[in-house]
Structures are given as structure tokens and as C-alpha cells.
């Protein structure tokens, strides 16, 4: 239990470093930036208590916020998907799965996991960009930023998941 939490912590720090040091500086075509720190919340294993999931989400968001200067935005968005993740995982995981199922392509099935990621990531992006552009009157720009960012994040997350869990 402690070891798996530690592993999770290292993984979270690594993702946050990548987010803060590399991805926050990348703006494809001048729009948006990939947001992949939500992967920390997406991959929380089944059986994580809902309160623990919420704390993971909020903590991750808070760190991302401090480094990106977006106080409250990431923490609100990640807390929200951390609230959704456990019940969604229950619904989307295969019936006969083990108790502490860790979401991945191999444990949930390719198509199921892709849907799972895509849905949570979309929620994260919608909340993030809605809060960020609070009084923004360029609605088109928000929509484009969100779209570009969403596509880039999804691509990166799929890649990252393949690197982390290579096919046997």
C-alpha cells in the first residue's frame, strides 16, 4: 500500500515536471498548451477511496497552478474529474476485473480505456478553459485553444500510456 502510494507520488511528480517545464511552454500554432497532468487522476486505481481521489486531484492541480500562475483553475478542474473518475471507472471497467484494477490499455481493453481517457480529459479541458477564459470575449479563440489543446493532450497521453505500459 505504502509502496504503491510512493510509486504513484513519483509518477505524479514526473508528470508535473513534464507539464510545468515542457508542455506549459509549448503552444501549437500559438494556441493552447497540452494539459497532461490529468493523467495522474485518470490512472487512479479502482478501490481508491473517493476522498483520497479528491485530494490527489486537488493536490496535483494546486502544484500545476502555482507553477503556471493559474491559481485555482487546475485545482478546480482536476478536483472535478477526481470526483467523476471512481464511479466512471466502476462503470467502464470490465465486469470480471480484479479489485485494485489500475486503468490502462491492457487492463481495460483498448477501446474502453480510450473512451475513458477521452471523456475525463474532455471534462478537464472544458472546465479549465471555461474558468481560464472567464471574462474572455473571444469565444472562438477559447474554442480553438481548447480544441487544439485537447487533441494534443489526448495524443500525448495515448503515447505516454504506451511508453509506460508497452505491449507484452
Amino acid at each position: 500500500m505504502i509502496i504503491s502510494t510512493l510509486k504513484r507520488l513519483v509518477w505524479a511528480l514526473l508528470l508535473l515536471l513534464i507539464q510545468v517545464l515542457i508542455l506549459d511552454q509549448v503552444h501549437p500554432w500559438g494556441y493552447g498548451a497540452p494539459l497532461i497532468c490529468s493523467l495522474i487522476v485518470i490512472t487512479l486505481p479502482m478501490g481508491t477511496s473517493r476522498s483520497a481521489a479528491l485530494l490527489w486531484g486537488f493536490g496535483t492541480g494546486l502544484i500545476a497552478d502555482i507553477f503556471a500562475g493559474t491559481a485555482g483553475i487546475s485545482s478546480a478542474a482536476l478536483t472535478f474529474i477526481a470526483f467523476i473518475q471512481p464511479p466512471l471507472l466502476e462503470v467502464m471497467a470490465p465486469r470480471d476485473s480484479e479489485e485494485e484494477l489500475r486503468p490502462s490499455f491492457s487492463t481495460m481493453g483498448r477501446w474502453n480505456y480510450l473512451q475513458f481517457i477521452a471523456l475525463l480529459l474532455l471534462l478537464h479541458h472544458i472546465i479549465y478553459f471555461a474558468l481560464e477564459g472567464f471574462s474572455y470575449f473571444f469565444i472562438e479563440d477559447i474554442a480553438i485553444s481548447m480544441g487544439v489543446s485537447y487533441a494534443a493532450s489526448l495524443l500525448l497521453i495515448i503515447l505516454a500510456e504506451h511508453v509506460r505500459n508497452p505491449k507484452k
Partner: peptide, 22 residues
């Protein structure tokens, strides 16, 4: 129901940060 309370608390906290420190 404790996670509901925690959820609301954390979202309110985020909102506070959002308005206070932006």
C-alpha cells in the same frame, strides 16, 4: 457522504484561489 462534502470544500477552495490570487 463525506466525499461530497470534501468535493464541495475543495471546489470552493479552488474558487477562492481563483478569485483571490488571479
Amino acid at each position: 457522504y463525506v466525499h461530497w462534502a470534501l468535493f464541495l470544500l475543495l471546489e470552493v477552495l479552488s474558487g477562492f484561489l481563483l478569485f483571490q490570487y488571479n
